[in-house]
């Protein structure tokens, strides 16, 4: 598991983020989330609000965004709940970044199916491009994180970069994706295997073949 820790509470951090406040657009979204819950249960909206805050920090810093302590305090204050409860949530879920990340947060799955399908090569390819686990690369573009199963085992190996999944990777396909991102383009999300649409069996169906074109009653075959 990734080594997570809170960014230290320094005067510089306070100065940079102490005045954090939702933009009008985000405020509207935040209130929309809060309105989903009964009155007095506004703290149920802590997860979407943390996400909004992280995205806003990302916009302000041109990265994926992260959650500085003053921002968590702002969210706690916004929801009228104790800060420690907000920090508990933020430290529990890996989607909340606790330290600054690069513009592209490359989260490589290293759990068994991906590992068997070559995630080790994906890691080395990332490292070859100058990424280091838990660090922001020198050009400020990349942060590499090893994560656990993302639920894309049938299209392993995969990486998640910010909001997009890139699956069926090889070193070359990954390089193509990363190059495109670095160049400011938006590569195709999902499987990178030519001819494959989503997570259907690669090379065509191997079972239930009669079901491909029409509904077939197998009961007589048993």
């Amino acid at each position: 598991m990734a080594d997570r820790h809170l960014a230290p509470d320094t005067p510089e951090l306070r100065e940079r983020w102490g005045n954090f406040a939702f933009t009008d657009a985000n405020k509207a979204k935040a209130d929309w989330h809060i309105a989903k819950y009964p009155e007095g249960r506004q703290k149920s909206a802590v997860m979407p609000l943390l996400d909004l805050a992280q995205r806003q920090v990302g916009e302000e810093t041109d990265t994926q965004g992260w959650l500085p302590l003053p921002v968590m305090e702002y969210v706690a204050d916004y929801l009228d709940m104790p800060v420690i409860r907000v920090v508990e949530v933020a430290t529990f879920y890996f989607m909340y970044n606790l330290v600054p990340v690069g513009k592209f947060h490359v989260q490589v799955c290293g759990t068994t199916p991906c590992m068997l399908r070559g995630s080790d090569d994906i890691f080395s390819a990332c490292k070859k491009r100058g990424m280091e686990k838990g660090k922001v690369s020198e050009d400020g573009l990349w942060t590499l994180t090893e994560v656990e199963c993302m639920g894309n085992c049938s299209t392993a190996p995969m990486v998640q970069i910010n909001d997009g999944n890139y699956e069926d990777l090889t070193v070359e396909r990954l390089d193509a994706v990363l190059d495109a991102l670095a160049a400011g383009e938006q590569p195709k999300e999902g499987t990178q295997e030519p001819g494959r649409r989503t997570s259907e069996p690669s090379g065509g169906p191997s079972t239930l073949k009669e079901m491909v074109t029409e509904n077939h009653d197998y009961r007589g075959d048993w």
């Binding site: 598991m1 997570r4 809170l6 104790p82 420690i84 409860r85 920090v87 430290t91 529990f92």
Partner: peptide, 11 residues
């Protein structure tokens, strides 16, 4: 509310 459990799992 001042004591909390941060992080998860064995961390």
């Amino acid at each position: 509310d001042e004591i909390g459990a941060l992080y998860r799992g064995e961390d």
